[in-house]
Design a protein around this nucleic acid. Structure first.
Lengths: 193, 193, 193, 193
DNA sequence: GATGAATGAGGTTTCATTCAT
DNA sequence: CATGAATGAAACCTCATTCAT
């Protein structure tokens, strides 16, 4: 786990806020400095480049998201209930953290993404998710789909819906969410009747 | 429908290729000119600005995608089969047109998007899709969800999976696709047993 | 005297109109072509360059102004009355030809001016004016001032006032004009009492 | 009164020099940078745009000219003598500051002028001049002419003559100047005999 | 005569990064 | 640690001029 000083934290925070407002390329080092009440020069004392700021911020947010995935889930739950809770956690995380959502989306659609390993897979939250899925694959309870496909069919859908909420295009009540979560998880399940 | 000359077509094509390679902001007018075997100046004979190129290209691709949505679908089919076919069409369109997919994704996550009306809703393919959904909403066969939510749960999922394919992260055989398509459509359906 | 074809006349007219609207450097060959219902290419059949258009237009307008100077003046008049009439002619010419006024002002404050001989001195109207002044200089009725100074003190003032009218900053009735004309001419006169 | 740093002063100075040599539109940011021994980029650290440089320079020069108007004038003088002194000040200011004269002329005949309030009227020198004129208007000693007309008939004439001097077309000795100044001021005066 | 697509140098402006203080 | 002036490459865009048709 990276150590992050308070000053670095302020810089990352300023970056996230600005990217949420103006996009990744609309955000300049000068703006970050001003927002973080710092000078452009000092930014380079804490970070090597704009790239490093962006990558570290992404890694930071991925960690934060990974932790949120496991909130309120208990390992003794049946796997379907467990996954539904993770699904809901994804949705609520992004709805409750719109700036993070915008930043991550910007990141993934930028020249930054793909140039370094995605730190998502180094996160404990995701690892736990992967572990559960692989266990159930071996138990023969879920369809033998590639992991990214499963991720897309579940968390991907939750995030997509959260983005609709953020953009004000559609809001869902808790009942509907539960219903949709159940349906999407069921897509993975091997029908046994 | 806009008339597009051969020269304009070449410029749009060059733009799409480059954006697929380097992203929207990584693509410059000079590069477009060089790729289209033209001079930077002449670009502005055909288009008013880089913005206009990008918007027109997006509108063009949306049209192309909208047309593809309705390929091989017949109006007499039961709506579930109809939608499944549209779902599969979405998937295959993006798998078969990866550059288009990358461009459209870049566009939606850029400062360009949202500054003009999304031409998606003016397209016949999408209109037909919307008509079918609204008809079934009135027939009481599908859940009363906001349209964007339905779009996300169906076409959104198809596109997400196609992107995985494009990025080489996961490939699905036709059998799996059919299965997933059926499951995602079923998410919309009101359970009647 | 230059021969000017109808087509050339149209181009010069379009140029003057546009310069009056947008300034000398705000006027492009393309705009001139469009306004003259021609193509950019054909402009270069009639003129060597934008410079030539501008210079020829200026020469043309200077001629026109020079002719206007002598309207309604009769050689038998006393020289003061003669000059007053010329003064008024100057004023009324510019008030009645605001586009010409704007163009000539733009021209004189541009890189164009000074690079070629000012065609003003080759014009019959101005020559007559100069002749009258030099005759009176020899008659000892007017002060021995350099010609440009006399021009400035008389016609220069008239033009300056006409510009105020054109810009809507001040209008003068005929009575006032007469009065001012008389006063400015008197400035030249040697006091003989 | 705006604070202007030494660096800003250098940039404005370079701009004025270049405009005097090549005109307003013939002067580029690169040239200004080079003349001010700076890089093009740093210009934008001090000014928002080329426009801002031009407007600020004009405002600065107007102030300087306004101050010069009142040099050596004493409020106890009869108004005619007072105005004659102001007239001579105008003339000598422009003769002694030819670059300023060229710049201001360029400015007034450009697209820059008229887009912002003319700072001339916010200057104490001009205000004092206007005050004196309005006072005498009420005293009934000068003709009821619009202010711009009076300005043209007096200061406008002085500036016009100064320009002749700058362009090397005509020089006037102090005696002639006094004489001309007296005559032009007399044009304003109501004849009382 | 006439068209209008094409060129390419050059304009203004932006911004990640450096460095003297 | 901290500042912010400075750099300079590169972006978008304009436009006088040419030339194949």
């Amino acid at each position: 786990m990276l150590k992050i000083t308070a000053r670095e934290q302020e810089i990352l925070q300023a970056t996230m806020d600005l990217v949420a407002e103006r996009g990744l390329l609309g955000t300049t080092i000068s703006q970050i400095a001003k927002r973080a009440k710092a000078s452009p020069g000092i930014i380079y004392h804490y970070f090597e480049s704009k790239d490093e700021i962006v990558h570290k911020l992404y890694a930071h947010l991925i960690n934060s998201f990974g932790d949120a995935l496991l909130a309120n889930v208990e390992s003794e739950q049946p796997w379907e209930d467990w996954l539904i809770q993770v699904w809901l956690n994804s949705y609520h995380y992004f709805v409750g953290h719109p700036k993070q959502a915008v930043f991550m989306e910007q990141y993934k659609n930028s020249a930054y993404h793909g140039r370094v390993d995605d730190p998502m897979y180094a996160n404990t939250g995701f690892q736990t998710l992967i572990d559960v899925i692989e266990r159930e694959l071996q138990n023969g309870t879920i369809k033998p789909l590639p992991l990214p496909v499963m991720y897309q069919l579940t968390i991907g859908t939750a995030i997509g819906l959260a983005k609709l909420h953020i953009e004000g295009e559609a809001t869902l009540d808790e009942q509907m969410l539960q219903d949709i979560a159940q349906s999407t998880i069921k897509t993975l399940k091997i029908a046994n009747d």
